[in-house]
Structure formats: C-alpha cells, structure tokens
Amino acid sequence: MMIETITILGGCSKSGDPEPVKEVNLKKGDVVSIVGPTGSGKTMLINDIELFASGDTPTKRRVLINGDEVLEEIRNNPHKNPIARITQHTTFLSDLPVCDFLELHAKIRQDGERYLIKKTLDLANQLSGENILLSSRMTELSGGQTRALLIADAVVIGNTPIILLDEVENAGIYKDRALKILRGYQKMMVFVTHDPVITLFSDFRIVMRNGAMEKVIKTTEEEKKAAEEVKRVDNLLMDLREKIRSGETIELKEVVV
C-alpha cells in the first residue's frame, strides 16, 4: 500500500478536555517536529502515530492512513507496520562487522540486495561525518555513528515510509545537512525535539501542552531565514566541540558571532 497521507484526529488532553487542534495532516515528504515542555505529551503523540490509535489509547486520538481507518491487520501485524521508530535509548546490540550486520537485515527485508548495504553505509556517512567502515564492528561505533547508522538502516533497508525520531539530536550529526539529505528520500519524518535547528528546518511543528495538541505552526518565511542563522550558530558550536575534542585551544575571535 502506498501511504500518501497520515491524518491525526484530535482526542482529549490530560484533563479530559477536547484537544484544541482537531486535525493534522502529514504528507509524503513532510518533515514535522513535535515540540513542547517535558511531560506535555510529545511522546504520547508519537505513540499514537506508531500504534495507529483508533480511539483506544488514553488520548482517544485516531490516526488514519490516506483518509481511512487503519485495518486491524496492519495495526496488529508488525510485519506490515509502515513505521520505524528510533528513540534516545535505541541502539545496536550485535557485535558483528557492519557489513555482516547490514547483510543480515537486507536478507530478511529486501532479498539481500547487496547494493543496499553500500547505499546504507553511504547515507550513514553523509549523516555523521565520522566515517564508518564496512569492516568496523558495531560495538566500536561512536554515539554519532550509531545514531547515523540506525537512521540510515531504517531509511534504506527498512524502507518504511514513516520514520519517528524521538529526541535523537546529539553530537556528531550536522542536522541541517542530515535533514536535506533525508528529505530526498520522500518519507514522512516526525521529530520529537527540543532542537531549534531541527524545528526551524521542519515544514511545520505541532506544539504540545498538557497532553494536547495546542496548535500547529507552519514554518514562516521569516523563520526559514532565521533558520539559516541558527544553523550558523549550531555549526559554530559543533566546530568548537570538534576543536576541543582534538585538543586545540579556542580563541575569543572564533566565537564572536
């Protein structure tokens, strides 16, 4: 089944009031952020998406595919589930060389097509900037490399049309570049995030409060311009981090924006 849109129909807040936002539509290729303070219901919202809630979760939301209720067969059969989710806790447990590991996944997912392994590795390397080798062992990967490979594997080999990323922003990924590359894959990418770069490079953001979708803000033209400036600050911080990591000293003039 081709998934063109996902519709989230509002349910109720933590206190049982109807959600201010009644309907949100996600289209193929959309990059969406979910923002809000801790405990505001961000994770609950992506749980609902992941489960294709049909009024049966505490929020009473309903999630539709292409405008229709999702068949129980798809909701309950993990093999047919079109969603990959990566959280801050998600990791690899295998101690295999990267190549063998990806081959194992490709074998059960896409009839083991070899070019997918290279494609996955290329994407991971574009995302992280710290080169991963096919011969690296999974357990030797750094935090940034692991994160990049998790995403690349879900995008290329897993090939699910919807990817949920729950607070995965961290060191070692150039976010704006990652977002640009990932957009090319025409997925629906949903970020739960506190990161201004990711938020401002999204098409729109859902603002959560007290368990409810409070409002939806489409990224304005002004914000898009601001995003470029924010990106500069973010990249400056990343470069500083790299310098400090490699034992260099920092001069004042480098950090005056």
Binding site: P78, H79, A84, R85, I86, T87, H89, T90, T91, F92, L93, S94, F101, L102, L104, H105, I108, R109, L150, D153, A154, I157, G158, T160
Partner: peptide, 14 residues
C-alpha cells in the same frame, strides 16, 4: 522494542 534497532527487531521477528 524501544531499546533496539529496527534491523535487529526485524531479524528477531523473522
């Protein structure tokens, strides 16, 4: 399931 990569989850399921 939240602790493990999509890949390992799918291999496990297979």
């Amino acid at each position: 399931i939240d602790l493990i990569s999509q890949a390992e989850k799918e291999v496990f399921r297979a």
